[in-house]
Design a protein around this nucleic acid. Structure first.
Lengths: 363, 363
DNA sequence: TCGAGTCCTT
DNA sequence: AAGGACTCGA
């Protein structure tokens, strides 16, 4: 038995808008901690992972873990029947063959109820390791959207290059080449000082003891990352059907990875973890990270990095990912060389993460 | 070497939006005085001429005249990558095979750079004489847009008829006939009293002594116009490839035209030069003609004419021209019987002019 | 007058 | 399916 009451149907609607073109069917894995969805896109090039925390619901009850196999097109249709500010109650009985959605107007004078057929979907929940990345870029979602959309006019792919000074997105096309450089600014640094530290579990890291083992950890982390991959290989994407695309996901194996940029690395990497331990939160008061963030001004990025990274990705997917800007004002790009990019949008009740393998041939 | 710095990319964006459906490729003729573009539309029925004064740029440098052959679709794409309030720097080296565009955010924390391939386009710069017209109609761009769009729903063409009292736009269609009469009002007269006299070379008229020498000069001007045509025939549109459409552009041939209107003629041609000599500004204070004009109220037209004119034009083109209302709030229609209509939008940094041959058969 | 939603076009 | 334009509502 699952019963989840959502304050606003809009959240689900936006969520579905974000992923429905990438994925057609997916299991909503419900357990007492919340609802998770994970799926490869239809061409098995990208992976999307959604997490909705139980705490984000007005009411949440899930007696036992259950996968709800949903056709996203159907769910999108049903969700279109909800008004944005309707209260939305989702129910499924233990046999999990029907998803029951109730939309209740704020005023309670309208109650709509929909039953949607569920389906059995092979559970391919992939264990995605909480990898460490060499570079993390935090920026406004709208700017990211803008950049990938702009560049997608020119060419098929974009090279993303991160250095301490900023991040550069560069594309080449028949008619024109273009690149956009976003500089790290003090304003951006302050703006995002607390990003992901409130309301949100970092989750992207697994070092639970402490966030700031600066120094020392660079190697460790890199190793850890690799380890993770190995360890979870069987449950990872690689473990799945052998798709040639798959290969891209487990990039070339690490030839380098011995370097130390301890201080920076430590800082960066632990940034997320450090949330609760306000070790050095720039002294900023804990601003609520509401739906996303409340910062209005565009421009500027926060760069956290150990190492210069330069990766090339298909713009088509990035444009697709960027639809999630409806869910959050802020996006984070996590990158390590030759490793899939992680694009993360955190919102009040959870997070949506996209993984995309880099183009190997560069271009 | 060309380098031009534009305060707002929006100007270029709007400019391209205005013409990109009319013309696919065109030379941006750059010289020390600014940038000019001139092209026939794809079906060789209309001609568009854009002028951007060097003085309108924040910085402008052009060492030697150079034509930049641009595919307007490509340029449009590249310009879409600029935000409206970006500073836009255009550069081309002397070999002129690449156009470099840099967009700089106001905050300078974003710098985008695009390189666009240029192409060789047969220079067909047509010498367009600064013709005298029998009638000039000045009105708000939005009203013009509205009228041609409205009438285009009824029929294919519109008859524009100018009398002292006003201007009438009339169309006939299968389902309905319609006409719109705009009366000249005192308000409009005042509103436009200084239009084009500030910031801008008049250029549309050369009667520097007065705008309203009604009566007396009508014949004179007509003659002048014809002279102009003859004189510049070789460089005029007529001089181009023999397109049957061409014919429309050189309406009836001047039977008279032996007279000398030296002063007028000289004026016209030098009109641009004369700008600094504020001969007769109607005593109006020099209101800045900013982006366009600052007059808010719609309605009413200013009519300046020697002679009643009645001409029929294809609405399709007029609707197309009217896109330039993004550039200016005011439009001027210049007409003489059997001569191409000139539709002119003046904006802070220049002007865009469209020429359209009348339909001869009337309908 | 501005913003959001819908419809149409590419 | 996405972007732009237009219309209606707040």
């Amino acid at each position: 038995m699952l019963e989840a009451r959502l304050q606003e149907a809009a959240l689900l609607k936006r969520l579905l808008d974000s992923i429905k073109e990438l994925v057609t069917d997916a299991n909503f894995e419900c357990n007492e901690e919340g609802i998770n969805l994970q799926a490869m896109d239809n061409s098995h090039v990208a992976l999307v992972a959604v997490k909705l925390d139980a705490t984000g619901f007005k009411k949440y009850r899930c007696d036992r873990p259950m996968p709800l196999g949903v056709n996203l097109n159907s769910l999108t249709k049903v969700l279109k029947c909800a008004k944005d500010d309707d209260i939305c109650i989702i129910k499924a009985s233990d046999d999990a063959d029907i998803l029951n959605l109730v939309y209740e107007a704020r005023s309670s004078d309208r109650i709509a109820e929909y039953d949607m057929k569920l389906m059995d979907i092979d559970a391919e929940t992939l264990g995605i390791p909480d990898t460490e990345y060499d570079a993390r870029v935090t920026m406004t979602a709208s700017e990211f959207t803008r950049i990938v959309r702009d560049l997608s006019q020119l060419g098929e792919s974009v090279r993303i290059e991160v250095s301490k000074e900023g991040v550069r997105f560069a594309s080449e096309g028949e008619a024109a080449n273009g690149n956009v450089l976003l500089k790290q600014t003090e304003a951006a640094r302050e703006k995002y000082a607390n990003y992901g530290k409130e309301d949100e579990e970092p989750k992207e890291e697994d070092d639970d003891d402490d966030d700031d083992e600066e120094g020392s950890s660079s190697k460790k982390k890199i190793k850890k990352e690799k380890n993770m991959k190995k360890e979870d290989a069987d449950v990872e994407m690689e473990g799945e059907e052998e798709d040639e695309d798959q290969e891209e996901f487990k990039p070339k194996s690490d030839d380098e990875g011995e370097e130390e940029q301890d201080e920076d690395e430590g800082d960066k990497k632990n940034g997320k973890k450090r949330k609760k331990a306000p070790a050095k939160s720039n002294g900023k008061p804990a601003k609520k990270v509401k739906k996303s963030d409340e910062t209005p001004a565009d421009g500027g990025v926060l760069i956290e990095m150990n190492q210069h990274v330069s990766l090339t990705f298909s713009l088509k997917y990035l444009v697709n990912f960027s639809k999630s800007s409806a869910l959050s004002n802020t996006v984070q790009l996590m990158m390590s060389n030759d490793v899939p990019l992680l694009v993360s949008y955190k919102f009040g009740q959870g997070e949506i993460k996209y993984y995309l393998a880099p183009k190997i041939g560069e271009e």
